[in-house]
Design a protein around this nucleic acid. Structure first.
Lengths: 154, 154
DNA sequence: TTGTATCCCATAAAATCCCATGCTATCCCA
DNA sequence: TGGGATAGCATGGGATTTTATGGGATACAA
């Protein structure tokens, strides 16, 4: 799972180290790198391992072939995503158009979200984090304990 | 998987470079090139590796010999498709009638969609892509995780 | 021939590889 | 428990390879 967050530097060549924790998550998979795409929800990037995309693909195949939503999702995800292989030091080079899309320069923040992760400019992420805390406060009553498993190890 | 999109130039001889990522997808297959056919859904081309066509074939074989759908698909895909081998530099020559069908000249856009890809004139693609993100957002809730793999390590 | 398709070589720009370095976290043993 | 040794990590930059593209030469067909 992609957990925790980390901020690394984007160098002059457009490269950035993927946090070692994240690399470990995709280490066993077929493609030695990550997949990134612009979020269709805001000015940040989303990413994951190749296995995540394969899951999306299986999921899309359960929708009807001529379903408008299926086509839109296919385009938004597959057509917009890039495969970024690791270099020897565990870095990837982020394409320039994605820098611009997410307003990245200098520092970038990786945010682990379990099956996938997000990439933010640190400033934008902090702002978003404020809103999220606020939202969490407002929605705290909706986080009900599940019946069993309370004593489990989460 | 065919991922991401790229726009390359169609030269005076009708040749165009297939994006290196796409070439990598079909690299292992029996035929060193791609298969292209006019989409029966609009003024663009569809394509994939030889493996995709073999999948379609298997899928068709589950239909009755005289099933209308079977015959239609056979005509639309198998009869209309061309095999385009790579030259030494990873280019293919696009037949002229397909230029016309898809309104191609100067620049052409390859769009990765997972198992297959599409070929568009950049202008036409942009027009089509405009509301995709919006549509994707509206349909994102339908992208359900598939049952398996939830316990996996990715 | 003439036109057409394929092969081969050249090149500039971009992406990638490879090695080096300082820093940090971890290990290990007294 | 302390502190030196060690391994892993993030980062910089030069060297090398790949990629996209142009154009000449060669084979084939009409």
């Amino acid at each position: 799972m992609f957990l925790s967050s980390a901020t690394n530097t984007l160098d002059a060549k457009g490269r950035v180290s993927v946090p070692a924790d994240f690399r470990a998550v995709v280490a066993e998979s077929a493609f030695d790198g990550i997949i990134i795409w612009p979020s269709f929800d805001g000015a940040y990037l989303e990413g994951g391992g190749i296995a995540l995309l394969q899951d999306y693909q299986r999921s899309l195949e359960t929708l009807d072939y001529y379903d408008e939503g299926r086509v839109a999702l296919q385009r938004a995800i597959f057509a917009e995503s890039r495969r970024l292989p690791f270099d020897g030091g565990g870095r990837v080079s982020l394409p320039k158009d994605l820098h611009e899309y997410a307003g990245l320069n200098g520092k970038i923040t990786f945010v682990g979200l379990g099956r996938r992760f997000e990439i933010w400019s640190p400033a934008a992420y902090q702002q978003r984090a404020e809103n999220v805390r606020q939202l969490a406060r407002e929605n705290r009553h909706r986080l009900k304990p599940v019946a069993r498993n309370l004593g489990g190890n989460i």
